[in-house]
Design a protein around this nucleic acid. Structure first.
Lengths: 339, 339
DNA sequence: CTGAAAGCGCTTACAG
DNA sequence: CTGAAAGCGCTTACAG
């Protein structure tokens, strides 16, 4: 039905082998033949059938799979930008598919589809595979890698140093004079990122001899969400004895929740109200008023590094490498010196 | 290298034909054989080779292509959510690829890849193909469709009624008592959405006998951007004779720019300052302070309808159908009655 | 420089 | 219920 190289071959009076060579610019052929083939292909409206080409010539390590998820705000877009850029430079294809974040059935379905499509690596963008999925991939000789996230599993990852993010953020607040610093948004018990950031947070406090009260920990939904920030403010205001004077919000969204919570309470942010620093460095930071200070992750570089690593890993699918990408501290208006 | 149905066939002592039938649940086979084949498949770690399956059995109308682009803020995520949901219900696959928004070379490259992958339709999510691309698709018997966007091209589209968006937004402002209403963010000359919204805007004004001054039109970068809103405020404040009292911002981002511009000028939004209504109904609206009134598009429904239409169009690739999805008006805090 | 032939892994009438 | 065989469209040694 659709036009094939056979049609082109017939049109120009060459074999399909020659047509194939010419179309792919491989092997030897005369310029004259090439010209006629190209013309015929254009004329007939020929397009390669990828399935056939892939089947005939199983390109090893040609396409990389990316599993993303849809969220309200998604820092993953920046990671994807990096992935696509690096992939283009390295001439590898990228197949992006969506899964539901913590739904293993959904993840399993997508992973299966990835395997069927012969990807040589799959990058999990903030979606957490379970061990079974990871094992399945390795068995299929596919390199699994977490990106912008890390878990307890035996799997490679490219992300920021979450302990340091927690440490540096808290340290900044301490240096600005705050002492009663809350930790809001992530769940130190349930997720490894939260655990590391919390560890950094407590270590920084310890260096200043402050012992966090348990009321300083506000988890909310544990999803690094805007809503957790909002809820935290209400909670703090209802328990004035908690008397926190600053918060380390585990995401910019959460930080925005804090600032908005203050606003909604009728005492909008001001130096002296409640300092706050978030994490990510998303566009939210400069679009909020006041603008949010943030531990800014290099998402683009994380994405780029992820594909570089995947390509590099080759078929060493069992290799486990945890790479940490540098972040920066962007101070804006929500971390003034304590007055 | 990887395990094939041949391996399974050998393992259980059946032909590949039988294995294929069993694995696909097609045709007749004994329960006993099925059991053994399933077991062997699991045991050996078998995964179908999609390329081979697709080649052997070219599933007509099985996968739909979606061309997306990466932007700072992206309402497309909601559209994609709708697309994926509808596609799952209809049992069609979705292949999502990214192009650079107004870069025809990039779009052409992606479209070519889509054709090679035998999609039966391609949905352009706010990316604008040119006529050549559209023609190419049709020639390849692929149904082209714009989604959440519309152009002058002869191509089907699923989007909101932009004239009405412009009309109703402006009308709301008029009903609230505003008369000197600016139009900010889109370029009525250069893009069809902007044109329709602007037409709606002027029609609404006309109904109230107001003639828009040309200073009321502030285009900025013409990209419906946050920055255009910010710049508009500066512009208006530098030309006090313009004296606009409200703005119809052609996106929520632009509306946020207006509100933030006011803040940055030291006279934060308040009833009496400058009313503003945006378009989209994105999460920005409820996360901004004040919360933004917005012409809320049904992006999920737009996405769903797009796949329904594509499936429905079948191979009528030349069919042109422009579908308009209802929107709603969400009034929040930025459109108080004029005082 | 070009062609005949085999093969990629799977599917599907067609026989039996 | 099962198998032999052909075929999907392309690629690639291998000859010539």
């Amino acid at each position: 039905m659709s036009v094939t190289i056979k049609d082109i071959a017939a049109a120009v009076g060459l074999s399909t082998a020659s047509v194939s060579r010419i179309l792919n610019g491989r092997g030897r052929y005369s310029a004259a033949s090439a010209k006629r083939v190209q013309a015929a292909a254009a004329e007939l409206g020929y397009f390669k059938n990828r399935s056939a080409a892939d089947l005939a010539s199983p390109q090893q390590r040609r396409t990389i799979g990316v599993i993303n998820y849809l969220a309200a705000t998604n820092a993953n877009d920046q990671v994807i930008q990096g992935i696509l850029a690096e992939a283009r430079e390295r001439d590898v294809e990228v197949t992006i598919m969506y899964a539901q974040r913590d739904n293993q059935a959904s993840i399993t379905r997508v992973v299966k589809s990835m395997i069927e499509r012969q990807v040589f690596a799959v990058l999990f963008l903030s979606v957490r595979p379970d061990q079974t999925v990871v094992d399945t991939l390795r068995q299929a000789r596919i390199y699994p890698q977490e990106v912008a996230s890390a878990s307890d599993l035996n799997i490679s990852s490219v992300s920021s140093d979450d302990f340091q993010i927690g440490y540096q953020a808290t340290d900044l607040l301490l240096r600005r004079g705050y002492r009663r610093i809350a930790f809001v948004g992530a769940d130190p018990q349930k997720d490894i990122i939260g655990r590391y950031r919390y560890a950094g947070y407590t270590a920084a406090l310890q260096a200043y001899d402050v012992t966090p009260a348990k009321e300083w920990l506000f988890i909310g939904d544990g999803q690094y969400s805007y809503h957790s920030g909002l809820a935290a403010v209400t909670d703090f205001s209802e328990h004035p004895q908690t008397a926190v004077d600053a918060v380390f919000a585990t995401s910019d969204d959460t930080a925005l929740g804090i600032v908005n919570g203050l606003y909604d309470l009728g005492r909008p942010f001001s130096p002296g109200s409640l300092a706050v620093i978030g994490v990510d460095g998303s566009s939210t930071c400069t679009r909020a008023r006041p603008q949010l200070s943030s531990m800014t992750q290099s998402f683009d570089l994380i994405g780029r590094t992820a594909v570089a690593e995947a390509v590099h890993a080759g078929d060493q699918v069992d290799q486990i490498k945890r790479i940490e990408i540098p972040f920066t501290i962007e101070e804006r208006q929500t971390t003034p010196t304590k007055k």
